[in-house]
């Protein structure tokens, strides 16, 4: 009875989460939904006499794999959202038809099979689930297990090879960077000094507050653009900052800078110069 309740609750949760995974526009939400499904399944494993797998599911999937997903999402652009408009003609229709057909057929197939009551694992796990499983893995399946070690090492090496990038020129020294900054200042008047920290000369030592210049004016450079955007949406933005940002946007448009501006991590942005209006950890490090 307890199992039934658990199952039905988790079944509804996991199916809902799976649908959410498929249909949410934002990848981050998808990842979270996947996490929900995985945890639900871990519980179902535990219910079905597989405590070891339940734990592994939590640790490996929900812990490692999901973190990896989220990490890559961060690299690729956490706030990017997919357009859900289908571009391939008929793809969505046929995908859903095939999916429903598949599920219905499989479900009917399974329903048609007359299953006896489950035998249960009590007989084979007399020594406990984990020791029994260990015995299986290290005796009958020891070769497969060893092969998986090779697989994992290969995968690790492969990931390194794929992610590795050859540097074709030597890394610029601090001196070169400094020279370039002043050359840019000479040409465009861009401030060569480090960006002001948030809240400098401000009454609030908070990241959402703009820094004040010595003359008391607001320094637009100190404004975090993402937070400013949020505030603009919520309507809590400082009107002065909003004005400055608008002016900036106008100036940018006038400069007719057509280069695509994607929010990029430095690790990925190899060609695009970083917009210096964003607060950069790197600058601070210097």
């Amino acid at each position: 009875m307890g199992e039934s309740i658990t199952f039905w609750v988790l079944a509804v949760v996991s199916v809902t989460a799976a649908l959410g995974l498929v249909f949410s526009r934002r990848a981050v939400y998808s990842a979270l939904m996947l996490g929900v499904v995985m945890i639900s399944l871990a519980v179902l494993y535990a219910v079905q006499d597989a405590p070891f797998l339940a734990v592994v599911q939590i640790i490996v999937y929900t812990g490692a794999v999901m973190m990896l997903f989220l990490f890559v999402l961060m690299l690729v652009g956490v706030d990017s959202s997919d357009s859900l408009v289908e571009t391939i003609k008929g793809q969505r229709f046929w995908a859903i038809v095939a999916g429903i057909g598949f599920a219905v057929l499989l479900g009917l197939g399974i329903g048609n099979v007359l299953l006896t009551a489950p035998k249960g694992l009590a007989g084979v796990t007399a020594a406990g689930n984990v020791p029994s499983l260990a015995e299986q893995i290290f005796t009958r399946h020891v070769f497969a297990f060893e092969v998986t070690s090779a697989l994992l090492i290969t995968a690790a090496l492969g990931a390194m090879v794929l992610a590795h990038r050859e540097r074709t020129e030597s890394k610029p020294t601090q001196k070169q960077l400094s020279r370039a900054r002043f050359l840019a200042f000479g040409k465009t008047g861009k401030n060569p000094a480090p960006l002001p920290g948030p809240g400098t000369y401000a009454r609030h030592n908070s990241i959402d507050m703009p820094a004040l210049l010595p003359d008391g004016a607001v320094s637009p450079l100190s404004v975090n653009r993402i937070i400013a955007r949020h505030e603009a949406i919520e309507g809590t933005i400082d009107p002065e900052i909003a004005r400055i940002l608008q002016e900036e946007a106008l100036a940018e448009q006038q400069a007719a800078d057509t280069r695509p501006t994607k929010p990029l991590d430095d690790e990925l942005g190899d060609t695009e110069p970083l917009a210096d209006t964003e607060p950069l950890v790197e600058e601070d490090a210097k």
């Binding site: 391939i88 793809q91 046929w94 995908a95 095939a98 999916g99 057909g101 598949f102 057929l105 499989l106 009917l108 197939g109 048609n112």
Partner: peptide
């Protein structure tokens, strides 16, 4: 088409047909 999703669709439809046939 070159779209990997189209290929995946054909595989999936094939799988569904297989299940149907098995059924």
């Amino acid at each position: 088409t070159g779209f990997v999703r189209s290929y995946a669709l054909s595989i999936f439809v094939g799988a569904a047909v297989l299940v149907g046939a098995w059924f």
